[in-house]
Design a binder for these strands. Structure first.
Lengths: 339, 339
DNA sequence: ATTTTAATTGCAAGCGATTGCATAAATTTT
DNA sequence: AAAATTTATGCAATCGCTTGCAATTAAAAT
């Protein structure tokens, strides 16, 4: 493995000159810079990561924090997409990423503690956002900068984040059904404590209100088929003429679809569905599911860009909103309705 | 951030003594060791990651290589599960993990090149295995140790790996159907070039052969509903009396199920299905899908354990087989058949 | 032609830890 | 009680790189 001294020797200069030349310092003359760069290339030189970080006291690795392990979360391809985005821009900027995981909140915090204590993490990116997150508390306590993907709950004005405009996405999805002639539209959610869900509901309500249509909410997880059937039976009793559903995510939409399709009464009616996330489920459904894409990879990229920009501590925080987009498939059917 | 000198000063000893004490060197007396450890705890000391690695010239981070980006791959929750397993045992051993990704083979190789050149990666873990992998070539060239998850293609005798016994898994899945009275069983696959698939087929064939039953293979991706219907029509013409399917993975099983369920002719017959991977799809199906679980997290853990063990270069390689397990749900129906 | 100023380069210290070797203290041995 | 060991500790060099400052050289000004 070539060191800076090897490069220096080969270029016939001192190590310090070589170092400066490699960094494009203005105090090095063009000819020597060229000599050094050439030598470096010939030796396949790359500065030793640890030595460099030690000398500059400026670490170059980004800690990516996954939410506490939970099967549901880990089977969500979202995270990997975000990671891919982060890694993409990090490696373009010569930074590394390292993961923080834990099977419990305590373990995760502990792991983060040692990462901080070892002092080689420049910044953190949190792939999630939740209320009273001990990780956030920890990071604030040690005064470590971080970016969250999602809407921050704590220190809202002091934390940078990147997120979708979920309210708008909710409105757009609903409007899409309205545009296709639907008037009796139900919003299906599974967990009100998640801000993504409540935001999308808000957006749905806004769209409905604008058209003076009543909001119809349904909270149901479809944990199993029977439970789903029961819930829907009850639901249709109260709202017999619903024609469209906005489901808070594709998985829920797919579950709903399964239930609707396997019931002799319901399957003859042609319901329209729209989901969110444009996940793999949308292609698995039959008919394939129209869905609002939210581009997790972009979220990751933007988060990484913020981190890479390396703002001064006193600068205002950054918030980036990644646009969404409706991906049209075959689960929304137009209905002729009176204006 | 406390340094070893701070600890030393507080304990009233020299830095070298402090360092040795922290490492439990036998040349340090009990009382001083205690003093040092106490001081370290009080100062919340953790050795600086970069300094330590620089001094010992022994890096402590593991590079985790994801396959080249490809939507299909990134939407597969498998990888994240493996990563979780890896991270789990790495952090228990005080090691870090860092990810290598790339949107093209070239980019991935390049990223790995710089990681190697920067000299701070101890070992790599490849989360995949494929023929003529340029990454493997690279790692061999630089003589960097690595472990692959899956069956190695190159340098088979010189590389450690962890994998499932996919042949056996194929046999077991098939046998499960046979035990439920099925005799006309079809194996459904999507990509013969993948060793997982060909191995599972082999296992299937072994089980069938043992019972003197003929193998019935069907290669179909179900890219869309119509294509699926066509393929199945043709298939059933040739094999009208098939009652059970072994699908090479859950997603394919789910797609098959969708097609079967949405056709008036087929839906009245009660086919039995078994899939692989026990993925989230198995719970989404209706009826829920019986599936062979393969425990990706365990795969990750075992891979990390091999890496952590830090075998001498001349030692024999390690191969770990992670057991699989059939998770019974509701997609396999017994049929009364004559012995 | 001499002095000033500007442009380059190298010396050496330091980042925070580890470790071979010398030294000091404690313990045995004679 | 002096010498020989054994046991504990500290000094100083080192890992590879960066950077303040002094030193050298070249260019410009007088």
């Amino acid at each position: 493995m070539a060191t800076i001294k090897d490069v220096a020797k080969r270029a016939g200069v001192s190590a310090s000159t070589a170092s400066r030349a490699m960094h494009g310092s203005s105090m090095i003359s063009k000819p020597t810079r060229d000599k050094v760069v050439k030598a470096a290339r010939e030796l396949n030189y790359a500065p030793d990561f640890n030595a460099q970080n030690l000398a500059t006291k400026a670490s170059n690795t980004i800690g990516v924090v996954l939410p506490v392990d939970h099967h549901e979360i880990f089977s969500n391809p979202f995270f990997l997409e975000m990671i891919r985005g982060i890694n993409q821009v990090c490696s373009q900027n010569g930074a590394m990423t390292t993961l923080a995981t834990g099977i419990s909140s305590e373990e995760l915090v502990h792991n983060i503690d040692v990462m901080i204590a070892q002092g080689h993490i420049r910044n953190f990116i949190l792939l999630y956002s939740e209320k009273n997150d001990p990780v956030v508390t920890r990071l604030n306590h040690f005064d470590v900068q971080y970016v969250v993907i999602g809407k921050p709950y704590q220190e809202v004005n002091r934390t940078s984040y990147v997120d979708n405009d979920n309210i708008q996405a909710g409105t757009d999805a609903t409007q899409y059904l309205i545009d296709h002639g639907h008037r009796k539209i139900c919003f299906l959610y599974s967990d009100l404590t998640k801000m993504v869900q409540s935001d999308r509901i808000l957006g749905y309500q806004r769209a409905m209100m604008q058209k003076q249509l009543p909001s119809i909410l349904l909270g149901e997880r479809f944990e199993n088929h029977a439970a789903g059937v029961t819930a829907l039976k009850k639901f249709f009793k109260a709202h017999p003429d619903v024609t469209g559903f906005v489901a808070v995510d594709d998985m829920l939409a797919l579950k709903l679809q399964q239930v609707l399709h396997n019931d002799p009464d319901w399957k003859v009616r042609q319901f329209s569905l729209i989901g969110f996330n444009n996940s793999i489920f949308s292609d698995l459904a039959h008919p394939t599911l129209t869905s609002v894409a939210v581009f997790p990879q972009r979220l990751g990229e933007e988060a990484a860009k913020i981190v890479m920009a390396d703002h001064p501590a006193d600068e205002l925080t950054t918030a980036v909103i990644v646009p969404h987009q409706i991906i049209e498939r075959h689960s929304v059917h137009p209905i002729a309705s009176l204006k």
